[in-house]
Simulated scan of single mutants.
Amino acid sequence: MYEPIRTKSVHSTMAGTPQDFPHRSREEELDIQLAGHLAALLAVTDELRATAPSADLDTAAERLAAQVTRLRGGRTPARASARTTGGKADAATLHERAHALAGRALVVAASRADTAAAILAAERMDAHAAALEPRELASR
């Protein structure tokens, strides 16, 4: 009824040296996480550009794409053109989402001491907060 296992378990960490399976350093993990947050911010920025085009958003999108490319070792991020974005979303909702994503990117950039990414994330937070400010004042 019972047949013994003939191969090593893939779950065993005691098999050989720690180099038997891939490891990433903390810095590599933070790079991956930061690239993900910035890529998500880039996607929302592209969506905002389709909703309300502006030179500021164009510049921000290019800077975000450059940072994501740097963090991903030269691989460029996927971009959505204005024609390929789905239904038009509310600009205020997009600014709120972008502000939150920029905040997450800022936290990770600060923890990995990436000054360029931290400055960019802080600038984007300020820009999206400023875009939301008139709406907040009108609702008071």
Rank of each mutant, 00 (worst) to 15 (best):
M1C: 11
Q67D: 10
T13K: 06
V10Q: 07
R79G: 04
S111M: 12
A78N: 08
M1R: 13
S81L: 10
A122H: 12
R104T: 06
D90N: 15
A52P: 00
K88S: 15
A80L: 12
A92V: 08
R83D: 15
A138I: 04
K8I: 01
H37F: 10
A80P: 01
F21Y: 07
H23L: 10
R97S: 06
T7P: 01
R75Q: 12
L132N: 08
P18K: 00
L34N: 13
H95M: 08
R124Q: 14
G87V: 12
A61P: 06
M125H: 01
A102Y: 02
Q67P: 00
A118C: 09
L42T: 01
V44D: 04
H128Q: 14
E96L: 11
R97F: 00
A65W: 00
L120Q: 14
A109R: 07
A131L: 08
A39G: 02
A131S: 15
T7W: 03
L42R: 04
A118F: 02
M125A: 13
S25R: 06
R104G: 14
T13S: 09
E28W: 00
R112M: 15
R140F: 05
R104W: 03
R70S: 13
M125C: 08
A127E: 14
G103I: 02
G86V: 08
A122N: 13
L94P: 02
R49T: 06
E96S: 13
T76W: 03
L120E: 12
T17F: 07
R6M: 15
E28G: 11
A43V: 01
S12K: 01
F21H: 07
A130H: 12
L57D: 05
A60W: 07
A80I: 03
A61W: 02
K8V: 05
L64V: 02
A66V: 04
A82S: 14
F21W: 02
R112D: 08
A66H: 08
A60S: 15
A118K: 07
I5R: 15
Y2C: 09
H23I: 09
V44P: 04
A55G: 00
D20E: 10
G36H: 03
H11C: 08
V107I: 14
G103L: 04
R63A: 15
R75T: 07
Y2S: 15
A98I: 01
A78G: 11
R135G: 13
T69H: 03
Q33P: 00
T7M: 10
T17E: 13
L30G: 05
R49K: 09
A92I: 05
G74S: 03
S139Y: 02
V68S: 09
A127L: 14
R83Y: 02
M125Q: 14
G16V: 04
L57M: 08
D126V: 05
M14V: 10
H128V: 05
R70M: 11
A117I: 06
R24L: 11
A35T: 05
A50C: 11
L132D: 08
T93Y: 01
A130Q: 15
A89V: 06
R24K: 09
M14N: 07
A122E: 14
G36W: 01
A129G: 15
A98V: 00
Q67V: 07
G36T: 04
Q19C: 07
E96I: 02
E47D: 11
G103M: 06
T69W: 00
Q19V: 07
L132M: 13
M1Y: 10
K8W: 06
